[in-house]
Simulated scan of single mutants.
Amino acid sequence: MTLHYCANALIGTFCLPTRYVESCRAEDLAELAAADHWRTHPDSRPTFITVVHLHNVEGRDLGLFELRCERKPVFTASPLQQG
């Protein structure tokens, strides 16, 4: 399954097995998206806060997440209120 996200205003995608995605929390997927984002931008250092929008996961918008990088490259997601 292809997951479409936007991290710090940059668009990205990555693939995971469908069975794995179905068993993950949205926060887990946001953490994987943040890790993918920084892996695909090796010339940049991860910011303390990365904002991830999981805008298309199997046609669903899973929302915005704030991810804090407290120990490189570990990310912790928290849902953000949209409004």
Rank of each mutant, 00 (worst) to 15 (best):
A26I: 00
W38F: 10
Q82S: 14
G12T: 12
A30C: 03
E70M: 11
A77M: 03
H4S: 15
A34T: 01
V51I: 14
A77G: 05
R68S: 12
A33D: 05
F65G: 01
C6I: 15
Q81K: 11
K72H: 08
T47M: 04
W38K: 04
R60F: 04
S44Q: 12
R60H: 07
C15L: 03
R68P: 03
D28A: 11
R68W: 02
T50M: 06
P46Y: 05
E58G: 07
T50L: 04
E31P: 03
C15F: 05
G59Q: 12
A35V: 00
C6K: 14
R68A: 09
T13W: 01
E22S: 11
T18R: 14
T2C: 01
T40Y: 00
A34N: 01
L29I: 13
E31R: 08
D28P: 00
W38P: 02
I11F: 05
C15Y: 03
R39T: 14
H53E: 07
L64A: 02
R39M: 11
L80W: 08
E66H: 12
R45V: 05
A7W: 02
A9H: 09
R71K: 13
C24I: 04
F48E: 14
P46T: 04
G59T: 14
A7D: 05
C24S: 13
P73S: 07
A30P: 00
R25S: 13
A26H: 05
A30L: 05
G83L: 08
K72L: 09
Y5L: 08
F75V: 06
I11D: 12
V74L: 11
E31A: 08
T76M: 05
P17L: 12
A30Y: 01
A35E: 09
